[in-house]
Amino acid sequence: MKDTFPKSSVMVIGEMIGYADGGVVSKQVLKSEAGNITLFSFDRDQGLSEHTAPFDALVQILDGEAEIMLGGETIRLKKGESVIMPAGVKHSLHAIIRFKMLLTMIRG
């Protein structure tokens, strides 16, 4: 089961997750009926294969650089940049260099 972070505590969100050599790490920050927030780290050349999600999702890059295929279009994001992935649109992620992201999915 993924970790859920404590409420009412100050966090430096990018420091709340580390990298795993050759892997992907995820930690659940917050989960509710309204949606969830998950922190991810990807080592270089790691990623998530093409899939869809039933709800819009905001991706915020906290460190590094990622390539996102979104509806057949390639988007490169680096630290400080974000994109909203629309519900039902096929997407995949690939680490150009290792990166961390915060994924916020809102149901509705």
Rank of each mutant, 00 (worst) to 15 (best):
G47K: 04
A53V: 14
G22W: 03
Q28W: 05
S26I: 00
I37R: 02
S49T: 07
V29W: 04
S41I: 10
V24F: 01
P54V: 06
K31M: 09
G35M: 02
V24D: 00
L48K: 05
F42G: 01
G35Q: 01
A34G: 08
F42V: 04
S49Y: 08
T52A: 02
T38F: 00
D45G: 01
S49I: 04
K27M: 05
S41N: 06
F55N: 09
V24C: 00
T38L: 07
R44L: 07
F42M: 03
V25S: 07
A53D: 13
K27C: 05
D43W: 11
K31A: 14
A34F: 10
E33Y: 00
T52F: 08
A20Q: 14
G22F: 03
S49M: 12
L30N: 08
S41D: 05
G23D: 08
V29G: 02
H51N: 04
D43H: 11
R44Q: 15
L48A: 12
D45F: 03
T38Q: 04
L30W: 13
V25Y: 07
D43F: 12
D45P: 03
P54G: 09
Q46E: 15
L39G: 06
D45T: 13
N36F: 12
F40P: 05
D45S: 11
V29T: 04
Q28K: 14
G47L: 02
S32M: 05
E33G: 10
A34T: 13
D45I: 02
L39H: 06
G18I: 07
G23S: 13
A20V: 13
G47S: 06
E50V: 10
I37D: 01
T52Y: 03
S26W: 02
D21G: 12
V25R: 14
G18E: 13
G35K: 00
R44S: 11
L39D: 01
K31W: 00
F42N: 01
Q46I: 06
G47Y: 03
S49G: 12
S32E: 10
L39P: 05
Q28S: 11
D43I: 04
G18F: 08
D43G: 11
Q46D: 06
K31S: 15
F55H: 15
D43E: 15
N36E: 15
E33M: 05
D21R: 15
S32Q: 08
F40I: 06
